[in-house]
Design a binder for these strands. Structure first.
Lengths: 199, 199
DNA sequence: TCCTTACTTGAATGATCGATCAACAACACT
DNA sequence: AGTGTTGTTGATCGATCATTCAAGTAAGGA
């Protein structure tokens, strides 16, 4: 019994992700947000409550999309380890494209807000913990299948893997060449080799 | 024929490093800077020109201190590879302490400013490039001494090593336990093993 | 002692920050 | 068509942003 919003909420969030991912929380002003979303302050505040609320939803949206991409990627591989190695190489490849930023938005948020905005820092932390859990499950699954050595501590290896992803995407922000990044991703993929089960 | 400054420039810069390292560029206001340095705006602007200028000098000071620490650390080791492995473990240990932030200030600066403040981003980039060069030299020296395999691409290994350091210090910002961090640092140190020369 | 020079102080600047709200517009219902 | 509800608009809010500057203060040289 009333009027429809003329914006699409998902589309607005997608645009917000683009801005926040590129410029960060403190680096994005409401004026820039208004321009990016093509919405006026009243609509933005009615839809998302506050700048914090919008950022929080954008971060959640980003994380969800990332999780879906990882799941979709892994589904293409019979071997978990092969899939994870390809995932690393894929990051290097996609960093050559024109994303808002090379570095991961979650990591950028964690580093930016850990001492200035505890709510957002906690959210970023939870996302990273969830990714760690996902990686651990994948590795345990690989271990159960006999892909990984029985003595491997999967939680520990998941942490090593997450650190690789964070390091790779952070160093990509330096603007390295595609070849350098591809070499690095290959070297990181090789790190997993010693953990494979020996037949 | 005039008055002396009553502040100590080096000490002021040290305090500025503490604030900027913790809160970042956009997260530190002039009011906070005034309180941290115990200086009034006029003095700050007379001494450093602008907030940007102060940040730039603070970043340079941080980088110089980091470089000196690495050099001092490496001098304690006969083997370069042993020294670098210990360096990684040392990061995990020192992250347990009470630094302004666990993550590296240079990386935080790069990620925060790469799309909002090109001057600072460029400076952070140059610092990282200098570290990469230092690591490459160390590894080449190790290779000349027969510590590393002759086929190792030292520039490429330096990049892998830098990515480890960035990843380790970034993931430390999650607030992991000392044990978890120590395990991770050990796993990263092990990455260097396959690059050693086989006798 | 007095003058010059340099450093310090704190109020004030205009700009921009995130956020609010009254007025208006559009659609779904009776 | 009339009415109630909800989305949109843009001016406007006080707060805070980085920065400036005139006035005051301390110390070296004559």
């Amino acid at each position: 019994m009333a009027r429809h919003p003329q914006y699409d909420r998902g589309e607005a969030l997608h645009k917000a992700v683009g801005l926040f991912w590129e410029k960060g929380y403190h680096g994005s002003s409401m004026k820039q947000i208004e321009q990016t979303l093509d919405m006026r302050p009243g609509s933005i505040y009615a839809a998302f409550g506050s700048k914090d609320g919008l950022f929080s939803e954008a971060l959640a949206s980003y994380a969800e999309r990332g999780g879906e991409e990882l799941a979709a990627h892994m589904q293409k591989f019979d071997s978990v380890v092969d899939g994870l190695q390809a995932y690393l190489r894929n990051i290097a490849y996609s960093c050559a494209g024109t994303c808002p930023s090379k570095a991961c938005m979650v990591v950028k948020t964690l580093l930016e807000t850990s001492h200035t905005h505890s709510t957002l820092a906690r959210q970023a932390n939870e996302v990273l913990a969830a990714i760690e859990t996902t990686l651990t499950s994948l590795l345990e699954q690989a271990q159960a299948r006999g892909e990984l050595d029985k003595n491997v501590d999967c939680g520990r290896l998941a942490m090593l893997l997450q650190a690789q992803i964070m390091g790779l995407r952070a160093i990509a922000e330096r603007g390295l060449s595609g070849d350098q990044l591809a070499d690095l991703a290959n070297d990181m993929a090789s790190i997993l080799e010693p953990y494979r089960a020996r037949h």
